[in-house]
């Protein structure tokens, strides 16, 4: 039932180039706001009959809830707007387009399906979590219990969106921050002090180094792949005996 109606709505409902340009500008401004607030730079807009009824940016760190992606925030606003305007949610959603700087993740794609949003316009692909083809194709999969499929229009200002993500990943993750400085301290301390005077100390040194590494690899899930950490970690471990012998 929902699938047929959704498809029909999508057919007669295709955003023009001017619309895409205009709304994507807004979405990029929202993403910049996220970047300035230490969140993953993704911004989005829900547009219904030429007006913005939902606007969101990533709020994961603020809320300590990893599901607070820009799309989920915007969908909440859409629902609040419907309640406020006394309009039926499903009839509004069927005529609402989502403009977002980065391809929605698997979770958000499923959420958009559940609400029967017919069209999603996005900038760059999301190789890490993308739910519109990059990792899984939730947007067009056959999932009869999960709302209706939606159409994707991709590639608008993709390079710019990627650049913003790169800028973010180059910065330190605020959650990994303290551990990184702890690690740096631990790595530099043997050069400053004679920490290696006894095996007991070297043991505590290793375990603290290891724990700070684990914390780092745990928390910086946006940072470099874990394998790199591990390799680095064992490189250091294999180097330690020589340090001990020479000191």
């Amino acid at each position: 039932m929902g699938t047929d109606e959704g498809l029909r709505a999508a057919e007669c409902f295709h955003p023009s180039d001017e619309e895409i340009e205009k709304w994507m500008d807004d979405a990029f401004d929202t993403a910049k706001d996220a970047l300035e607030n230490g969140e993953v730079p993704v911004g989005c807009l829900m547009v219904y009959s030429n007006q913005v009824i939902g606007k969101g940016r990533n709020e994961v760190n603020e809320t300590k809830n990893a599901t607070r992606h820009a799309e989920m925030v915007a969908l909440d606003q859409l629902l609040a707007w419907c309640r406020h305007s006394n309009l039926d949610v499903s009839s509004v959603c069927e005529r609402t387009a989502l403009y977002v700087t980065v391809e929605p993740c698997i979770m958000c794609a499923a959420a958009l399906r559940l609400l029967n949003i017919p069209v999603v316009v996005y900038g760059c692909r999301n190789e890490r979590f993308g739910g519109c083809g990059s990792v899984l194709d939730v947007s067009s999969a056959s999932l009869p219990q999960t709302g209706s499929t939606f159409k994707c229009v991709s590639g608008h200002r993709a390079e710019e969106a990627v650049e913003m993500l790169k800028t973010f990943y180059k910065q330190e993750n605020p959650n990994g921050d303290q551990n990184l400085s702890l690690l740096l301290f631990l790595l530099s301390s043997p050069l400053l002090s004679s920490l290696f005077s006894s095996p007991r100390l070297i043991f505590s040194y290793i375990s603290s180094l290891v724990s700070s590494f684990l914390l780092l690899s745990d928390f910086c899930f946006y940072a470099v792949s874990q394998e790199l950490f591990i390799n680095f970690f064992f490189a250091i471990l294999s180097f330690l005996p020589f340090l001990y012998i020479t000191s």
Binding site: V60, A66, I106, M107, C108, F129, G131, Q145, T146, N175
Partner: peptide, 27 residues
């Protein structure tokens, strides 16, 4: 504690795609 790192979830019914991915995001 950091989001759901190390936690176990017990749920009566197999989660849908949205919920499953929410759990991935929540570690």
């Amino acid at each position: 504690p950091y989001i759901c790192t190390g936690y176990d979830l017990y749920v009566t019914r197999e989660p849908c795609v949205m919920c499953a991915m929410a759990l991935v995001h929540s570690r």
